[in-house]
Design a protein around this nucleic acid. Sequence first.
RNA 1: GGAGCGUUGGUCAAGGGGUUAAGACACCUCCCUUUCACGGAGGAAUCACGGGUUCGAUUCCCGUACGCUCUACCA
Length: 477
Amino acid sequence: MNDKKVRVRFAPSPTGGLHLGGVRTVLFNYLFAKHNGGDFVLRIEDTDQTRFVPGAEEYIFNCLQWCGLQPDESAVHGGPYAPYRQSERKPLYRQYAELLVQQGHAYYAFDTPEELDEMRVTFKTGENPSPQYNHLLRMRMRNSLTLSEHETERLLKQDTPYVVRIKMPQGEEIRFTDMIRGEVVFNSSQTDDKVLLKADGMPTYHLAVVVDDYLMKITHAFRGEEWLPSAPAHILLWKYLFGLENMPQWAHLPLILKPDGNGKLSKRDGDRLGFPVFAMDWTDPRTGERTTGFKERGFLPEAFINMLAMLGWNDGTGQEVFTLNELVEKFTMERVHKGGAKFDYEKAKWFNHEWIKKLPVQHYAAQVKQLFAESGITIKDDTQFEKVLELVKDRCTLLPDFVQQAGFFFKKPTDFDINAIKPKWTAQKTIFFAELIRAYELMPLWQHNDLEKELKEMAAAHQLKPGELMLPLRIML
RNA sequence: GGAGCGUUGGUCAAGGGGUUAAGACACCUCCCUUUCACGGAGGAAUCACGGGUUCGAUUCCCGUACGCUCUACCA
């Protein structure tokens, strides 16, 4: 089992923007796989047709690409276990559901949505506000356990809508070892008879995840902590269908929490507090509502990934700035925290600042140039442009900051009211400024001969101090 | 309500039976700077609570509190 090639997967539903937490789940999957020389699979879990959002799948690919977390196998890359879209795998699942029924581990349920609602209200008490379809109630519902064999046959033949539910055993201890949390124990009576196969013939997540993890030879399954309560059902499915010895090793990742208060970070928190939550811009095709992402906000992917990695993991040395390769090299599940971490936007920006300083400006010059263009400043000389970016990068936290910090250099004299600023200059400042533009050959940007002449004269009249070249720049900006 | 999971400064966190309990972000003070930033030097601030075990618990055990997640024909 240990000699098997490591294979992990990220399995999002294409329902909208890709959330911070989702990207971190991808990251940890990716880091673990690459650290162990394994494969990272992207599987699309589009089994809920009612929630399907066109464009969301492509959007997810784009996000992963921007982050530099390329899957080895996916619906677009292809791979030996295709298809990677669950809707295209639909015919695969039914046989497993039927097998479970034959084994007596599952049953057909004919209850209509209305009947289920009714059950939930009639059995609702103060003690039990949310009654479950479980060992206590299943014998009072309409299913192949309560109906005669003949009646069940008849219903099936008449194409009566039905679902297949798992028959959770009573009082059985279900335990497994979570790579992050250690041994976790559940009593099987606590878990409800989850629907495995829906009335439309699509599997639910619970069936699809174990079938596909098996078929795709997944060795390690990492997902958010919110899945922990349904793990017992998945373990049982593994036991009934494919054998526990083939089951992947689980790790339930801690949640990313909202900065204020408690609870899972949501898109809503970002809107409310003024920071992005999605990796990239997402436009809801239904409402047309646009939500800005980290990318468009001016984050570098290196910083975004770095920041996410430090939310729930560290290497124990105090190092905080890591390249993707360093993360791959150092990442281990053992050092992932159990507790959730509150998202801190200020710290996220700090990471970006570090990466802007660390990376050569060539890495992001094109993107900054685009930002300049958007604010009406056209860059003609790229070499000079990069020189200027180099001068001001220490002052920039987000990419758009460059426009504010360096836009000055590229404004035409007509846009730039030199007379409004001049009175504030001392002779000393002017000198330094003159020296600065000479040193960096920035004067041509201005195309302003009078100014140049004036500055040169003033500079000549005083002694220059080349060591303090940055002074006038700081004054001007 | 039930089940599961969690709990080191405001936040991210290292550590782990005996330490001055790292470091980072944020905050405050000072320096630098005729603005704003950047940078530099300092500062304040923490082991949820109660019992054990122990010579000694932040660290190990048990409770309690609090928080979170789940409790859909959503994932």
